[in-house]
Design a protein around this nucleic acid. Structure first.
Lengths: 218, 218
DNA sequence: GTCTATATTGCGATAGAC
DNA sequence: GTCTATCGCAATATAGAC
């Protein structure tokens, strides 16, 4: 964890698995460990070698570097959401799609890098508004859009009673990030094991689709 | 804001509105502005006067000071939740109680000091685990307990279909802290005006009680 | 390794309550 | 007068920066 195999200055030990990717991974660890502001480029140099000049050539700025870190995770997570959307478009029924969304979404928000990103950006977001904005808009915001589309498709089939699909989507996202998630984010609760998460996923889908009341409102 | 009226060494300028309370309020501003770790006692002294020794006499330590800040807000917020609980015990019906809970809960989580507390503790919680733990246990955790009790009362009356009231309570709390709350917490969205919040509150109560699906599961 | 920043503590002086 | 709380200052300790 501390003194990992630092590549020599010339760094030609076989096939480098994409130098850029390697830098981004190291930068992620530093940002997650020390936060955005306290992280410094020199720490990064100390880990991956090379020169500051190279870093700035590739990433433009410290913000650009952080954005690259965000991207490296978001692109992966986006695929999971897109898969849900594709299955829905292919004709999955309502409950199946919502369940798939809840699973994908849960796997994303509890992923350690995602927790770290939220910790950094919630803590320092007001100081670095464009970082927080870009993270939110390219992360949660597109997820909300995709989910809204899914809900609208089912509403068109007469399967939903709601007026505002966007609002329902945003609230379903809240169900995923519930009290327990908050505990994990605060570092108070351990990462829940998969079976616990699955149990909660089932429960939240039931609540979202059917509610908890015995008799529905008039 | 900067050079406020520093009380003279003798400090007898009329009725001091509780010296301790004044210190806690100033400490809150500093913690919220700079975060826990970067806040220092000397800043506090510069604002409220007095000596470090006195601070330590009253609050024991920096952690104790922060805990006092947390308490100063939590005790106020706890009353709002207790009022909901009392009304429910007095016989309020299910929808009324859930609506009242959603309103109280929303007013708390969107309150600027609460947002600041979350920002500080989510950002630095892993470094100061007892602070985060104490905050969580005396805040969200007791809210979950009170809400669970409310749900159990209505379950006993046959008004709820759920098995696990605690789980449902935790998920309802997630509905309150939805996507939009996350945007506010990140500093990306403005504080929503009351009518927007009220509209979302109504919608989340409907989802929680009735769900969004046209036909209930078998 | 040095150096700085800062949490924490010790101690004598002082002011007001009684 | 005594007592108590605070004050102001100086000293210790430690963690991180350079």
């Amino acid at each position: 964890m501390t003194a990992s195999a630092k590549p020599g200055p010339k760094g030609t030990e076989g096939e480098e698995p994409d130098r850029r990717q390697q830098i981004v991974a190291a930068a992620a660890e530093i940002f997650f460990d020390k936060g955005y502001e306290r992280a410094c480029i020199d720490d990064l140099i100390a880990r991956v070698g090379g020169s500051k000049r190279t870093i700035y050539n590739i990433f433009e700025s410290k913000e650009g570097l952080f954005t690259a870190v965000v991207d490296s995770f978001l692109t992966d997570y986006a695929k999971r959401i897109d898969a849900v959307s594709a299955a829905d478009e292919a004709g999955a029924d309502l409950r199946t799609s919502i369940l798939a969304f809840a699973r994908a979404s849960t796997s994303i928000v509890y992923a350690p890098p995602m927790l770290s990103l939220y910790r950094v950006l919630i803590g320092e977001g007001r100081r670095f508004p464009n970082l927080a904005k870009s993270f939110f808009e390219r992360g949660a915001s597109v997820v909300a859009t995709v989910l809204t589309r899914i809900l609208e498709r089912h509403k068109a089939k007469g399967e939903l009673v709601i007026e505002d699909c966007r609002l329902a989507a945003e609230q379903l996202m809240g169900l995923v990030r519930d009290y327990q998630y908050l505990g994990v984010l605060l570092g108070v609760c351990e990462q829940p094991p998969p079976e616990v998460l699955e149990h909660r996923i089932i429960a939240l889908v039931d609540i979202f689709l059917d509610g908890v009341a015995t008799h529905r409102r008039a």
